[in-house]
């Protein structure tokens, strides 16, 4: 062993966000989804024949025009995966802005890496589009509105397997 530690190594975001928002005066803690049952779909064919799609919580870049930027609202989107975008909007998301940055899109949405895996024959192909879904306080909206739309886009693009990346 490298060390002995009297604590759990990985951060519990459920615990630390509850404490943080309580300190801001929010008495009712956020209730995170918990399920006992987990659905599981095995791949229907070898990965070398599968088309793989990526889903991100990052948003499309904010418009440069200040007026348009003020009106910018997070929405779902499907965008061409190639060439990969030079940047995506992440300022409104819950991530560690002091410790790291998101200027390298492949550090949170590995479009270039996926294209390389396709070129190497590891997967059949990369989906021609990637998909964006806002992080929403409302689990109802995520379940009833966003999830079916992502499924629809994946089916339109002939996607066989999906990698989802939360910042």
């Amino acid at each position: 062993m490298d060390q002995l530690r009297p604590y759990r190594s990985f951060v519990s975001y459920i615990d630390c966000s509850r404490t943080y928002y309580a300190a801001q005066g929010y008495d009712k803690p956020y209730a995170w989804p918990h399920y006992d049952e987990v659905p599981f779909a095995p791949p229907a064919k070898p990965l070398s024949q599968c088309r793989v799609g990526l889903v991100t919580t990052a948003g499309l870049p904010k418009p440069a025009d200040p007026m348009a930027a003020m009106l910018y609202r997070r929405e779902m989107y499907a965008q061409p995966a190639w060439p990969p975008p030079a940047s995506l909007y992440t300022d409104d998301l819950f991530w560690d802005k002091k410790a790291t940055h998101t200027r390298d899109v492949d550090s949170f949405l590995p479009l270039t890496r996926l294209a390389r895996a396709a070129a190497a024959g590891r997967i059949g192909s990369a989906s021609p589009r990637f998909y964006g879904v806002p992080t929403d306080y409302s689990q109802g909206r995520t379940i009833e509105r966003y999830s079916p739309q992502i499924l629809k886009w994946c089916r339109e693009d002939g996607v066989d397997a999906v990698i989802l990346l939360a910042l």
């Binding site: 989804p33 779909a41 791949p43 229907a44 999830s147 079916p148 994946c154 999906v162 989802l164």
Partner: peptide
């Protein structure tokens, strides 16, 4: 994001988060 992954799995699409 986990909720979206669960929906895809339930509809037959394999996922990794």
């Amino acid at each position: 994001m986990s909720l979206v992954a669960r929906h895809l799995e339930a509809n037959g699409l394999p996922t990794v988060v």
